[in-house]
Design a protein around this nucleic acid. Structure first.
Length: 423
DNA sequence: TCTGGGGTCCTAGGACCC
DNA sequence: TCTGGGGTCCTAGGACCC
């Protein structure tokens, strides 16, 4: 059996953790640049505020109902997420961190008759140790556990926030209550198509013929989904040591950028972030790709974003910030055209290999011990004391392009100067 | 005026090989 | 007048996830 533990309204719950007065009140958290609403408490959902809706379109409801609004505070959410995941790792032998707020647990070895009790234990312990409310879904497959979790979350009082789908009858009942677009793996395109064939619930899909699903729902992907709905596990637990194959850092600018110097500052900063992620997972990257998005005025006065990108295969895989910055700067110079109004840029590192198995090139020197040490020291300072305390000059100091975060809360758990004050 | 960021997996089609 | 069969690898794009 597998469980999924999913934090309820995670970002909003993190904000509430340090502002107890917000309990029972509507809270929303915004995406980067304060663009969209990406997390809502139940009270905010009840007001009709939609997920991923633009902030400015919801401004009226938000002001009229006194909804607390926060810019995203990734320092805080990342740290709280680690606490939740550390807790689950203690409680369960085999976990797969699926996203910042979700974790799959392999429950093989738990007595089947004790599963319900165990689900309550998971929920209560996590909440007691971290202060973050969670929902638990347990079923034979990942897809069914997501179904269970969703129903538990929808009826927190009736289910006590947990649901176990063990018997065929329990599974049938749950699948009949799940609309087709709420199935994990069925997106907008798939659900539109399924609805046309009068397949309206997860149960309808579960009863379809395998060949039909193969031909009409993304081939092998659809077949896996079908089997998972029937209780046959096809989506395995992922190895916790799996490394990312791509690492990207991309951002909209807080305001448009016109100068090459500013564009370079931004891209150098994104390379810095991306190489930090790279070193954290102890890898090196061989390929870098830089893209820029710009708006040019069209005849009808409408703006339409357009982008250009360039990739480069480096002589050998590296994790050294300033080496990758140098390649990235050359790409930016080729991408830049005077007069364009730039609104976004991004860096993608790929061809990622573990640090220990870098294939060296006959004609280049491997990273010297000094450079390795420099990266290590910079990471220690920036991760341990304050990010960007030490940085490369090309990444700039004024940073007019930085994203808007006008309503960010304190970084309560990761910055000494922003700790919670107890009066 | 204003709509995020970071991933994964799969497929189709083209280039190329023997 | 006429042109096979079977592979691999790469890339772009689609779909989906949170």
């Amino acid at each position: 059996m597998k469980a999924i533990v999913d934090c309820n309204s995670f970002y909003a719950a993190c904000e509430r953790l340090f502002k107890p007065a917000l309990h029972g009140k509507p809270v929303v958290v915004l995406s980067n640049n304060d663009g969209c609403i990406v997390s809502r408490t139940d009270e905010a959902k009840a007001l009709g505020i939609r997920m991923a809706g633009p902030f400015y379109q919801n401004r009226k409801e938000i002001e009229e109902n006194n909804v607390a609004v926060f810019s995203s505070n990734y320092h805080l959410y990342g740290d709280i997420s680690n606490r939740v995941m550390d807790t689950l790792r203690i409680l369960s032998p085999s976990v797969e961190i699926y996203s910042v707020d979700e974790c799959f647990l392999d429950l093989n070895g738990i007595e089947p008759s004790k599963l319900y009790e165990y689900s309550l234990f998971l929920k209560h312990t996590t909440e007691l140790w971290t202060g973050i409310p969670v929902s638990v879904g347990i079923a034979p497959t990942k897809v069914l556990s997501k179904v269970a979790n969703r129903l538990a979350k929808k009826d927190k009082i009736g289910t006590r926030g947990v649901m176990v789908l063990q018997t065929p009858e329990q599974q049938m009942e749950a699948l009949m209550r799940t609309e087709i677009e709420d199935v994990w793996g069925v997106g907008p395109a798939g659900s539109r198509k399924l609805r046309m064939f009068n397949i309206n619930t997860a149960w309808d899909l579960r009863n379809m013929n395998e060949d039909w699903v193969r031909n009409n729902l993304g081939g092998i992907v659809g077949v896996r989904l079908l089997k998972e709905l029937k209780g046959m596990p096809c989506i395995d637990m992922k190895d916790p040591l799996t490394q990312k194959k791509n690492i990207a850092t991309t951002r909209m600018f807080g305001k448009p950028v016109y100068e090459l110097r500013e564009l370079k500052e931004a891209v150098a900063t994104y390379v810095t972030r991306a190489t930090e992620k790279l070193r954290r997972q102890k890898s090196a990257a061989r390929a870098i790709s830089v893209f820029i998005v710009f708006n040019n005025r069209k005849i009808n006065q409408e703006y339409e974003p357009t982008s250009r990108s360039l990739s480069f295969l480096m002589p050998e895989a590296t994790y050294v910030t300033h080496h990758i910055i140098a390649y990235a700067m050359a790409l930016v110079e080729r991408l830049y055209r005077e007069g364009d109004k730039y609104i976004k840029a991004g860096v993608i590192l790929s061809e990622i290999v573990p640090c220990g198995s870098v294939q060296f090139n006959l004609f280049t020197e491997p990273e010297s011990a000094e450079v390795q040490k420099l990266m290590h020291i910079m990471d220690n300072i920036n991760f341990g004391i304050r990010d960007d305390m030490v940085k490369f000059a090309v990444a700039g100091t004024t940073r007019n392009w930085k994203m808007r975060q006008e309503m960010r809360s304190q970084r309560f758990t990761t910055r000494w100067d922003e700790l919670c004050e107890v009066k």
